[in-house]
Nucleic acid binder design. Structure first.
Length: 485
RNA sequence: GGCCCCGUCGUCUAGCGGCCUAGGACUCUGGCUUCUCAAGCCAGCUACGAGGGUUCGAAUCCCUUCGGGGCUACCA
């Protein structure tokens, strides 16, 4: 098979895209990039009761934010559009009519209530549930009788006897006996198409060569193949199927709001980097085969193959995502780190965005880069440099009101005041000389008091660097103020 | 219930008949380093679901069983 690979990601945006969807999108994208093929993005919005324009737009934005760029699809266009199924209704109607003409499909006049009743009976009788084929061979009289009753018909695909066998690239040969694949509906009574029709028609028309999707769709594959057959597609032209394992929640339940946040928008707000999310998600159900874990998007494209994809489901682990996010943050250049941090700082009201503020942020970023795991920790870390009405944290006040602390602060003030050069080296030299050498205090005791006085907290970035950034005037003022507590 | 998929440390995984007294990563625990917090380094804990085969030899192959999941819609 030497035709060019075309992979598609075709979500049905009935809500915000979640980590499971994104993992699928990531694998689709990585496979397309790995093979030098095309990545097609299609919106499956045939279920108009559940899909909204907002969710569609959110899906587009999420993919863009993650850097999963597509070659064909919404906004970028392509030769096989439109890429919203709601804009392709006439195409599906045409094919449905063709199937009807070919007798591959037929009108079914059964009402939902009747179908429900037969299902109930089947279940009670302990036989495989499914459409019983009642309307398969209706006579003209029966049809007009139903119509006279005012019944609306759906279009149902005729599933011939036999079985469907296909090779799943991840699971191997999979076979379904048609006894368990009942005739299925292609078109609703209102004339709108169903997934089973639209997905197959589009994959053929859009010349998709590889279908990498969630394993929940595994058992719908025989139906999809049935549509290919009715369309006259030769079996050698069927796309290759690969059903990806699920991404599960902390317990073994499916991912949901209940266990861990699932919406990508949430991760974005929390300060996770797209590259970290993709890196972590790539490790869920796939591995490069060696011990490498921290990989770039570029490396993922180079390394990704379907053969290395697992067949078993993976549990989502927030802790590991955080660890990877921390690694990615540490790997950021200063300018990148600044770019990611600024929005969080302004949103938190720490800075307004003036040049001098940004310059100070940029100077301070290096000392916190290895201390945070998520970008949303930046405001809290740098807050002490910008607050107008500085105050020591309530919990820490009592730690600097004892005699030893008072001495430390008094002495520090005295030693620091005459300093003409204000940088972390001069500050450290001065403080060490008086507090450690002369007073004989333990560094953690002595510097701890100064830390609380100047940064307001027992936890802060490195003390001397922090004081350098704070400036001499503010540092001394804070120490003096602490003495009055 | 039926059909289908899946089953290695707590979690993600390496492993594709001998290199496995099962390796790596995250988490956790202890230690080193240290101005706090981190980062870094070192050490430790913990796994082939169970039972049968096949084989000189099985985490790797086969069967059964148990467990988990998906589907069973005029959802996708």
């Amino acid at each position: 098979m030497d035709k060019k690979v075309k992979v598609r990601f075709a979500p049905s945006p009935t809500g915000d895209l979640h980590v499971g969807n994104i993992r699928t999108a990531l694998f689709d994208w990585a496979y397309a990039r790995h093979t030098g093929g095309t990545f097609l993005f299609r919106i499956e919005d045939t279920d108009t009761t559940r899909v909204t324009d907002e969710y569609i737009q959110a899906a587009i934005d999420t993919l863009k934010w993650l850097g999963l760029n597509w070659d064909e699809g919404p906004e970028v266009g392509g030769d096989n559009g439109p890429y919203l199924q709601s804009q392709r209704l006439d195409i599906y109607a045409e094919w449905a009519q063709k199937f009807l003409d070919q007798k591959d499909a037929y009108h079914c006049y059964c009402t939902p209530a009747e179908l429900e009743a037969t299902r109930e009976a089947q279940r009670a009788a302990n036989v495989a549930p499914g459409y019983d084929g009642k309307c398969r061979n209706l006579t003209a009289e029966q049809i007009s009788a139903y119509k006279a009753e005012g019944r609306e018909a759906v279009v149902r695909m005729r599933m011939p006897d036999g079985s469907t066998t296909f090779i799943d690239e991840i699971r191997g040969e999979v076979s379904f006996d048609h006894k368990f694949v009942p005739d299925f509906v292609l078109v609703r009574a209102d004339g709108s198409p169903l997934y089973t029709l639209a997905v197959a028609v589009d994959d053929v028309l859009m010349k998709v060569t590889h279908v990498l999707r969630g394993e929940d769709l595994l058992s719908s594959t025989p139906r999809q193949i049935r549509v290919y057959q009715a369309m006259g597609v030769k079996s050698e032209d069927y796309p290759v199927f690969a059903h990806l394992p699920f991404v599960m929640g902390q317990d073994n339940a499916k991912l949901s709001k209940r266990n861990g946040e699932v919406s990508i928008a949430w991760y974005r707000e929390q300060g996770y980097l797209p590259e970290a999310i993709c890196n972590y998600l790539a490790l869920l159900g796939w591995s490069p085969g060696d011990d490498r874990e921290n990989i770039t998007m570029k490396e993922l494209c180079e390394l990704f193959t379907v053969e290395k994809v697992h067949s078993s489901p993976a549990r989502f682990d927030m802790k590991k995502l955080e660890a990877i996010n921390g690694d990615k943050i540490r790997a950021l250049t200063l300018d990148e780190f600044l770019k990611w941090s600024l929005p969080f700082l302004t949103k938190a009201g720490i800075i307004t965005g003036t040049d001098s503020e940004i310059a100070l942020v940029k100077a301070a970023l290096p000392i916190i880069q290895e201390r945070i795991v998520k970008i949303n920790e930046v405001p809290q870390m740098l807050k002490f440099l910008f607050v107008k009405d500085f105050a020591v944290e309530a919990d820490s006040v009592s730690k600097i009101t004892d005699d030893v602390s008072k001495d430390v602060l008094k002495r520090s003030l005295k030693e620091l005041e005459p300093l003409t050069t204000w940088n972390h080296d001069s500050i450290e030299a001065a403080l060490r000389a008086c507090l450690i050498d002369e007073m004989g205090l333990k560094p953690r005791i002595a510097f701890g008091a100064v830390r609380i006085a100047t940064t307001g907290s027992t936890i802060s970035p490195p003390l001397f660097e922090s004081m350098e950034l704070l400036g001499k005037e503010a540092s001394l003022a804070r120490i003096a103020a602490a003495l009055t507590l």
